[in-house]
Design a protein around this nucleic acid. Structure first.
Lengths: 337, 337
DNA sequence: CTGAAAGCGCTTACAG
DNA sequence: CTGAAAGCGCTTACAG
């Protein structure tokens, strides 16, 4: 059996209150007693029980993290960011993976009660209404990339719209006019925002540039099909902008197989900047999404809200993206590794 | 304030014991009382407090996961495997990221006391001696890929040795004789096991095949340097087997720059089967490490140990690897996507 | 500077 | 089938 506070107190011939003070560094204790207690703590290898501590303080020093089914790199990058931020603050992370439905997500949130001080939520089902219903209300939460901006919770969004716009402008700036867009899933927030950014930019660029959207679903296969379809067109596009990198890679494959040169015959661009993007030939021009930063900022947001209850400003922050120009867009502009 | 057991009991005009029985499904309660209580639970949106429950039951239904600094894909795959297994068993996951030293890892383990029922540990510092010192002994734990096979804890290892052997045999079977090996870090367990597997296989294959090892450190850059060095040799190898895929990609780059054809002039193989392996040209022959399965099996191991305390068989399981033959090894055998 | 005591929210023998 | 009571291991006003 592991030693308890009482064991230490008995050995030291003091009350548990005194031991507790020493453990928690609450000054008012003689140096002598403190030293004696610390010695015994050491000897007994005493470690406070977190459950007990949580029960009496009402604090767990733990943040619950709800994540959807993310593809590999994103998943790991965002977790890394969250983990680093949590480590800096001495907080623990309770992870809750893929939730296939709103009901599952709700269950996961309930199960976290009493285990966490705050919630970091990235789930397609978690809008602010959902949270109001299930989050017990009193638990601070920040939503990542949530479609609905709640008034009761903070949220953090990737600037998908701005990033897509910047890409369209880049493609236009290096001379492309017929810029097609391979869309993502219609019910995906990132996907629809990127599409919107594309449309806005095209509209902005005026009559020389026209909108042309092909369906896709973020998969490599959908990119492959989209590219095949684009090649059958009478008026082929001179640039293809895919809603994400995997889709762009599918396009690349189809172009290669068809003997269409990238960027010679057609420019290609993606979104995300997955690690593969640098390695394919030609290297893929894309929009970088700073996942680690997103995770870290979200964690910081929750931690701040936990620290200053009530004073939650319930903001909506936008995380900027970065245009990464590589060979595939056929730009003669600066090249990035 | 969220409702407590007592609130429910008061409303239902029963004791907290009865409510507790209903909540936990302990049969001996009238259907009438049960229904009444359940109704109130619903109305008050009562959710049991986990900290309190943990304190009185001594169980947290949570497994602590200690991970080192893994590169992206591995990290996410292993977590995914762990998460799925945990979900199946209704367990929560407390994540503890990168630990740069044994002291840090020890601190992390201590901090988990009272928060977890068991430990899943993947850390270069966590051998069984370390665990005996810090794990409070009573917490079941399984080590992933730990260099030391403890007698007090179970461990799970990737069959690095067998995988490397299989690769050497594959390369030999398609006609290669001068098979060089680009090693990994000397203090890395995976790396040294792979090297050992290579050496054993070379010895097994007899006089026609000789051992030739070049240093490396798992990085792409080290592969690049190794390949350059190999090309200066009087007797160039006809196959290069790198200790991991990133190293192999470095070799590939060096070969390409030097105008050395792969697999025409030299065959190339890696280890890990990172996603990139399929995408490079030529696609990389490699050894797949089933990370998700590794994670899932480790979680299951901990959960079983938690369920059956004392009866821990403290086994050492080996997780099989899989030879993945692609174009880079120049095999005329079956090709895998 | 130190201690006695109540309390955090639950569970669980033990009686009845 | 149900309840009174003790206990899980800590923290924290409140006294002294």
């Amino acid at each position: 059996m592991a030693a308890t506070l009482r064991d230490v107190a008995r050995e030291a011939q003091v009350s548990t209150a005194t031991v507790s003070r020493v453990i928690n560094g609450h000054g008012n204790v003689t140096n002598a007693t403190r030293a004696r207690i610390l010695g015994i703590v050491e000897r007994l290898n005493y470690v406070p029980d977190s459950a007990a501590r949580s029960l009496s303080t009402g604090l767990t020093n733990t943040i619950g993290v709800l994540l959807p089914d993310l593809h590999g790199e994103f998943f790991s990058e965002i977790i890394r960011g969250i983990d680093q931020a949590a480590r800096r603050r001495g907080l623990h992370l309770l992870l809750s993976g893929v939730h296939g439905s709103a009901a599952e997500a709700a269950l996961a949130i309930r199960a976290l009660k009493g285990r966490v001080d705050g919630l970091l939520i990235m789930s397609p089902y978690a809008d602010s209404e959902f949270l109001a219903d299930h989050s017990a209300g009193d638990t601070p939460a920040v939503l990542i990339n949530s479609p609905v901006r709640g008034h009761s919770h903070s949220s953090l969004c990737v600037d998908n719209r701005g990033g897509a716009g910047a890409m369209v402008e880049h493609l236009a700036s290096v001379g492309h006019r017929r810029i097609a867009f391979v869309a993502g899933p219609k019910d995906n927030f990132d996907a629809t925002e990127r599409l919107a950014g594309y449309c806005e930019a095209v509209a902005r660029l005026g009559p020389g540039v026209r909108e042309f959207v092909v369906p896709g679903d973020f998969s490599e296969a959908s990119g492959y099909r989209a590219a095949q379809r684009l090649m059958t067109l009478d008026e082929r596009p001179d640039a293809v902008f895919a809603a994400n990198d995997m889709t762009a890679l599918g396009c690349l494959l189809a172009f290669k197989e068809a003997g269409v040169s990238v960027p010679g015959d057609v420019a290609l661009a993606g979104f995300d900047d997955i690690p593969l993007a640098r390695f394919v030939a030609p290297a893929l021009t894309t929009v970088r999404v700073p996942m680690a930063e997103l995770g870290a900022r979200a964690l910081d947001g929750v931690a701040d809200a936990v620290g200053a209850p009530g004073a939650t400003p319930s903001s909506t922050e936008i995380v900027a993206t970065e245009l990464v120009v590589r060979a595939s867009s056929g730009a003669r502009a600066r090249m990035t590794a």
